[in-house]
């Protein structure tokens, strides 16, 4: 069928265009970071690493990167604990209100962060936590926990409850069942969820804008402040490094998931 063939080529061509559009910003930012000019012309007239040197020379960048880690890692840990607990209760407890509970857990991820930001600001102020690391960690956990919840729910859904029941008939109490059966089965989901939670915190701007202070300023916030002042390729250099790091995280998550799938998991267990 000739018409079908042409339609097919058009479809595939269109998809290729769209995917090109999706990847385009990366192809602009990375070359720009190696520009030898101090204005944002593209493609750069010449190459240099001066913007990386400029970035390294400004102590604010490494400080912000350290802050982002100091906030991202505890956020990931707290999210994994809380998200896993919630997922276990929702997927394995026979609760009548499980759907309502998961709606509440997932909501923070989908509601505009600005609402939570202006709500959390006075709460943190009252608790005396404002501008400390803890306040941002807590706020980021609220929006990152849903990702752990979703990935762990998916892990729990990938095998039947029968496996845990089998462990119980074998004489394993609730804790032993979790330790020997449930945990090994959902470990990958927890790890992937943790990586996603870290990535969320690492990229979060709005809550950081309201809750961080000069001592706890994160990378996105610093980029944001710089963007509003002057557009130099320094930001492109920072962006390239962040992009490389994100790819690393993505690769880690993908590898984890691939390993999880390679595990001999019974389809209908």
């Amino acid at each position: 069928m000739a018409g079908g063939g042409i339609l097919r080529i058009m479809l595939v061509g269109f998809a290729a265009l769209v995917l090109g559009y999706l990847i385009l910003p990366t192809f602009i930012v990375v070359p720009l970071s190696f520009s030898n000019q101090n204005y944002l012309s593209f493609p750069p007239p010449g190459w240099s690493t001066r913007w990386y040197e400029a970035m390294a020379g400004d102590l604010a960048w490494p400080q912000a990167a350290v802050n982002s880690f100091l906030i991202g890692v505890p956020t990931a840990l707290l999210s994994v604990v809380l998200g896993t607990l919630a997922a276990l209760a929702v997927k394995r407890g026979r609760l009548g209100w499980a759907a309502a509970a998961s709606a509440v857990v997932v909501a923070p991820m989908l509601l505009p962060h600005v609402i939570m930001a202006i709500g959390l600001y006075p709460v943190m102020l009252d608790l005396g936590m404002l501008r400390g690391f803890l306040s941002v960690v807590v706020a980021h956990t609220v929006v990152a926990m849903p990702l752990v919840f979703i990935t762990v729910c998916a892990s729990l859904g990938s095998y039947g409850e029968a496996l845990e029941l089998a462990a119980m008939t074998c004489g394993a109490g609730p804790w032993a069942t979790f330790r020997h059966v449930t945990f090994p089965m959902i470990r990958t989901g927890m790890l992937v969820g943790g990586v996603l939670a870290f990535a969320t915190s690492f990229d979060e701007l709005m809550l950081s804008l309201f809750l961080t202070g000069p001592g706890t300023r994160t990378l996105p916030r610093l980029i944001w402040e710089q963007l509003n002042m002057f557009l130099t390729p320094t930001i492109a250099a920072v962006a390239t490094l962040i992009f490389a790091f994100s790819l690393l995280l993505l690769g880690a998550a993908a590898a984890l998931q691939a390993r999880g799938r390679a595990q001999p998991v019974l389809r209908h267990g």
Binding site: V81, L82, G83, L85, A86, L88, A89, V90, R92, G93, R94, L95, A101, V104, V105, A107, P108, I115, M116, I118, G119, L120, P122, V123, V138, A139, T141, V142, M145, L165, M168, P174
Partner: peptide, 27 residues
Amino acid sequence: ISRGHAWLLAAPLVFLAIFFLWPLARV
């Protein structure tokens, strides 16, 4: 089997009540 499971939600729900629902209510 589900007797204990509801308690697993205690920590996440208390956390969300204080740092999500309460701030929204204040807004």
